[in-house]
Design a protein around this nucleic acid. Sequence first.
DNA 1: CGTCTGACGCACG
DNA 2: GCGTGCGCCAGAC
Length: 122
Amino acid sequence: MTRKLPPTSANEDRPFFEQVYDLVRLIPYGRVTSYGALAAALGSPGAARMVGWALNKCHSVHPPVPAHRVVNRKGLLSGKHFFPGEGMMRDLLVSEGVRVEDDRICDFADCFWDPSTALDQL
DNA sequence: CGTCTGACGCACG
DNA sequence: GCGTGCGCCAGAC
């Protein structure tokens, strides 16, 4: 194949970005997770920024990725500013039953979903 | 090839 | 609890 993976790469047979997309798609309805949790589940606890980077380009990815269910470790909707509609991310979460106040998820720990529990589905 | 940025996270004060 | 600095990996310039 045209796949020339460097020996230093611990990548799976899929790019890190695609792994992020698949994992984010597994986020249950009405649940949320954090960038760091996704990165850690993928084996790169320090690649939280990469998760955000991957989600930034998720607009060109299909099937669509529920990026609105991904927030930072503080439960803050740090990515809301990147959505087409202002407040759209908040609206989506609220529509799913997630309580959001001032662009921050209430009871974040309660609705938090651990992506590592879905690695089996990935 | 060097440098900066980025939807983050953590250590430190 | 809050501000600052650094590290993480990948891409853009």
